[in-house]
């Protein structure tokens, strides 16, 4: 019976760096947040795919031409587009270190965001009121899921914006707060990109 001979290496071999390489805090946040947005994009891809399959299944109920008012959708689109550029102005003010301007533009952005949500809720309420709720047909189920998910994202974006306004007011434009504002900027512009898909495929294509 032989025992395996274990030889201790004379020189301790190093398999990992002794010290973690030093990175500034938050240096990987832009890429990490971008990858989160891409995963969110896939959620919307599945919902768009569902809508593409079910969007013509009216089940004897009303179709887009009887339900949608394009003037209302154009107004809603304008609200979101205005909120995109006003958030951009908030970011420009942030790079200048002008806290007052940041608060002003964030407030205006939140106002446009709230207007968007109000118009969307008015539309949903109107549809449900005339008996075209999500239970009416497969088309309306897919419609409410897709547009509602986008609206929910906008809602959470607004909650996030309110939290950041309080943070900036309390702590000022610290590096952490700047990073948070940058992330919300990406989120907010990303929601506008999703809305392009919504008004094109759901509203405009349905009304042609």
């Amino acid at each position: 019976m032989s025992t395996p001979i274990i030889t201790e290496p004379t020189d301790p071999r190093v398999f990992h760096p002794e010290e973690e390489p030093h990175h500034p805090e938050g240096h990987s946040t832009p890429l990490g947040f971008w990858i989160y947005l891409m995963s969110d994009c896939l959620i919307f891809a599945t919902l768009f795919g569902t809508f593409a399959v079910l969007g013509q299944r009216y089940g004897g109920g009303p179709g887009p031409k009887e339900l949608f008012d394009l003037w209302l959708i154009a107004l809603n689109t304008a609200m979101l587009l205005f909120s995109s550029i006003t958030y951009g102005f908030a970011m420009l003010a942030m790079h200048r270190g002008d806290q007052k301007e940041v608060m002003k533009w964030l407030g205006i952005t939140a106002g446009f965001g709230l207007a968007f949500l109000a118009i969307e809720l008015y539309e949903f309420n109107h549809l449900i009121h005339i008996g075209a709720g999500p239970g009416r047909s497969a088309f309306l189920s897919a419609f409410f899921t897709l547009v509602g998910t986008h609206g929910l994202h906008v809602t959470f974006g607004l909650i996030w914006m309110a939290a950041l306004v309080l943070q900036v007011r309390k702590h000022g434009l610290t590096s952490a707060n700047q990073r948070r504002l940058e992330c919300l900027s990406m989120f907010w512009h990303f929601l506008d990109v999703i809305w392009i898909g919504v008004f094109t495929f759901v509203y405009l294509m349905g009304m042609i």
Partner: peptide, 12 residues
Amino acid sequence: PHEGHHETHAAP
């Protein structure tokens, strides 16, 4: 993060 100083280029 609670430091009150302004640091430009916090993240790239």
